[in-house]
Design a protein around this nucleic acid. Structure first.
Lengths: 271, 271
DNA sequence: ATGCAGTCTCGAGTAGCTGGAGAGTCAAGA
DNA sequence: TCTTGACTCTCCAGCTACTCGAGACTGCAT
């Protein structure tokens, strides 16, 4: 019979943890003095304690360990749980490694530039959207502005309120300013199934854009400096070993008359 | 000006998190209606929010991010912090991978045996000890018992109380029952600098055993079945790709007359 | 006027402990 | 027998970065 401190030395587990396990009923002391409340342990409890530690080390929660120790779980169930943990952990490892890679690339960046980067690029889950869109091959990207106005000019009178800021999708595999395959999308309610032609005679397509993970960057300032943002996001993707998995999007988050100037969000879907 | 829900859609950050950042002062809304308490945001806050998310993704705490955003930290300090995080994270990644390997080896084990393993093996930090020890080359391991008794026979009368259970250290690079280089160690107080010779005329060495990480296993049952435990720990070390980094120890945790039978702890230092 | 979706604050919960406060206990020395 | 000091007890708070729920209020559309 050892008091908790001695037992703690023997098993090399902190006293506080032993008390915690005792309270949870995971490792009840062999006896508790009813007057003093002192917990008394025996060396014979070491195998059980080691089982607890071993199972904990496998990533199981104390709750789950309790079930296992009380034989509430069959071997098959334990196997299933472990397989689940395994999948979960390999995902976690991959995620951790990616995060470490991001830290390293960031370090390299600030050590070469010796200051904070101009843009912050973040991975986000962009969820699925139902959109009304106009797709055209343009020989002049200036036209995008008038196409947007044209689109709103059709949707608003028809009572179709966009549910979010409109954005363009650049379908070209490589940038070609003389024949740019551009889609302008207006997010609309899920129930919208058709839209009238625009004042300029364009025809809407209604489609779903699936959700995806995307590298997202916010560009604040005049649109004609946005190429810097493309450079930054390209470098970032390369540094983080991510591959582009779809056409990039540019969302126009501000109204044309916003006092803080135009704000554009770049989204590159990644695998 | 957007209400929190709309802004949440734009930035793809949950409302609860935005409120949390607002309470922490990390991303205060541009205005708060004094009567309703409604928070109002603007698109121009997206860059700051993305900075928060990017820094968070680098493993910084919200506290640290707050300092950075308020310019309380120089670029050099940020670099230092990131380097620290980097070291910490690569350690964490390695640890996670090792844990994943343990899960996988455990899965393989229970899938081949189709039941729970007999022993639970755990990595523990064994801390440094000051010991009085007897080292000898024995041609018969049975003698260990009498050596232990001999040791106690010298220490107790001299008023040197062992501070923990005694243990043997097997110094042989490979097991040799005809000439086993065995050290029997009695943990004693740090102040002990010498001990008298034993009744049988053996001479104590007083030394420090450095702390180390060790694979630990508890064997409950008669000593002559302990070879199973050695097999188990050997398999475990192999499955977890750990290398032995010192002579193994066997600690005798029970008194000879303990009703629960002998309990032995095996410790293999690992790198 | 009435819904109803959105928002507010506040408090609790998460996992696995760790640390502290304040009180009681045990064994040895004076 | 008393004291001292090490140990132990219970209970509560804190850690991180939120999330969830209760109960009350607001804003907008019918």
């Amino acid at each position: 019979m050892y008091r908790i401190g001695e037992f703690s030395k023997i098993c090399r587990v902190p006293v506080s943890a032993l008390r915690y396990y005792s309270d949870l009923g995971l490792l009840p002391p062999v006896s508790i003095d009813p007057t003093s409340g002192y917990r008394y342990y025996e060396v014979a409890q070491l195998p059980r304690l080691n089982r607890i530690l071993a199972l904990k080390d496998l990533g199981l929660s104390l709750d789950e360990i309790g079930s296992i120790l009380n034989n509430e779980l069959s071997a098959a169930e334990l196997r299933g749980m472990l397989r689940l943990k395994q999948a979960e952990m390999s995902r976690a490892v991959a995620e951790q490694q990616a995060q470490l890679a991001r830290v390293e690339s960031r370090l390299r960046m600030i050590e070469s530039e010796d200051n904070m980067p101009e843009y912050e690029i973040v991975l986000k889950d962009v969820d699925a959207m139902h959109v009304a869109s106009l797709r055209e091959v343009l020989d002049n990207l200036q036209e995008v502005g008038s196409m947007i106005a044209d689109g709103y000019g059709a949707l608003m009178p028809a009572g179709i309120m966009p549910t979010g800021p409109c954005f363009t999708i650049y379908h070209d595999p490589e940038f070609n300013p003389e024949a740019a395959d551009v889609e302008i999308a207006f997010p609309v309610g899920d129930t919208v199934a058709e839209a009238p032609d625009t004042p300029a005679g364009r025809h809407f397509a209604i489609r779903d854009i699936p959700g995806a993970k995307a590298a997202v960057l916010v560009h604040q300032g005049p649109y004609d400096t946005i190429s810097q943002a493309y450079v930054a996001i390209g470098e970032w993707l390369e540094a983080n070993e991510l591959r582009v998995a779809g056409p990039p999007q540019e969302a126009y988050l501000t109204a044309p008359d916003d006092p803080s100037g135009p704000i554009t969000e770049l989204r590159f879907p990644v695998a």
